Computed example of a mutant assay.
Amino acid sequence: MRHTNTPRTARRITGWLGGCALGLWLLAGAAQAQSLPVSVSASGNHAEAAITLPGLPGTPLAEVLLDFQDASGLSPSSLGVSAKLVSLSDADLLARLPDLDLTRLQTALPVLITIQPPRYGGLSFHGTGRAEIHTHALPYAAGSRLRLFKAPLGGAFYDITDEIAPGSVRARGTYGGFSQFLILADVRPTGLVIAAKVQRLRDRVDLLPWSERAGFDALLDDIEDALAIDDYAAALNATDGLRERAQTRAGVYLADQWRATRSHRNHAGELIAGAATLRFSIAFLRDHGP
């Protein structure tokens, strides 16, 4: 008899079991800000966190993978990772979403992940980091509307997605800092999403030294002009130009370090992250329409 319990099949079964277990928790009303066990490992510029349900340590509900461009002091304790199940009717949380009707918590994964490094834990990094939330609780489909959202503690969530990949779902995004993450279904018109991302970049440019603003504003103008005539190639080229400009000027003309002490502004990292997620949305509009 041929064995079919390959590692991939085993992961699918594990994910299915985790989804069933989560469903039972929800039906039992246990999702009211229920803290979840988190196991964290870290080495060099990479860290991983496995999120499980209480009593099911071998059944990962989600995994968080963090990769840094240039980290210092990275350790499990310096990251400050926690996770909790949240209620789908939590008014305070829902008020933090961009659109109550069009950005939706997922019943299969109502998990809020917080990465809040302790102020004196010693963590710092230059440039950007990349986050991936991997889960078998959500199905993957081409053109998926699942997105990775990020927010400051207690603040408004915004889309940082730069890739949605299979396996079952791997939601990836680039960041210049932390702290809270959700996977949401975002059915807002893509044009509105792009406009919000452009505005967020303009707000970041307004924080730069005067001598640095004009070059970035000109690139943002080029992006909007290209999108106005559906010239996606030109819009993507200008977006890549913005990212490359931030990378080139990082560390000399633009601050590019994040520290747990919150004493530094990572302007370059935030611009690079903003360009990465903007590129994702422009390409999505080109490939899938509004």
Results as ranks from 00 to 15, higher is better:
Leu285Ala: 12
Gly215Arg: 06
Thr190Ala: 10
Ala62Ser: 12
Ala226Tyr: 05
Leu285Pro: 00
Gly176Leu: 09
Pro54Met: 04
Pro37Ala: 00
Ala235Thr: 07
Ala141Gly: 09
Ile272Gly: 00
Leu56Gln: 07
Ala273Trp: 02
Leu109Val: 08
Ile183Met: 06
Arg172Ser: 15
Ala283Gly: 10
Glu244His: 11
Leu61Glu: 02
Leu94Phe: 02
Ser77Leu: 12
Leu26Val: 14
Arg279Tyr: 07
Ala235Glu: 00
Ala141Thr: 15
Pro54Cys: 06
Arg145Pro: 03
Leu112Lys: 05
Leu153Asp: 13
Arg213Gln: 14
Arg265Phe: 08
Leu105Gly: 05
Glu163Arg: 15
Pro54Phe: 09
Leu208Ala: 04
Ser41Asp: 13
Arg96His: 03
Asp217Pro: 00
Pro110Asp: 01
Ser179Gly: 03
Asn5Trp: 13
Pro110Ser: 07
Ala31His: 11
Ile272Arg: 02
Glu212Met: 11
Leu236Asp: 10
Thr277Ile: 08
Arg262Asn: 12
Leu153Ala: 13
Leu242Ile: 01
Leu271Pro: 07
Arg259Ile: 02
Gly251Val: 08
His288Pro: 12
Leu148Thr: 08
Ala33Tyr: 06
Leu61Pro: 02
Ser144Thr: 15
Ala108Cys: 06
Asp217Glu: 11
Leu66Lys: 00
Val86Ile: 14
Gly215Trp: 01
Pro118Ser: 09
Gly173Ser: 12
Ser263Pro: 00
Gly129Asn: 11
Arg200Ala: 15
His126Gln: 15
Ser72Asn: 11
Ala42Ser: 07
Ser41Glu: 14
Val252Phe: 03
Gly121Trp: 09
Glu163Lys: 15
Tyr140Leu: 11
Ala83Ile: 09
Glu244Trp: 13
Val169Asn: 08
Thr190Arg: 13
Ser75Gln: 04
Ala141Glu: 14
Leu184Gly: 02
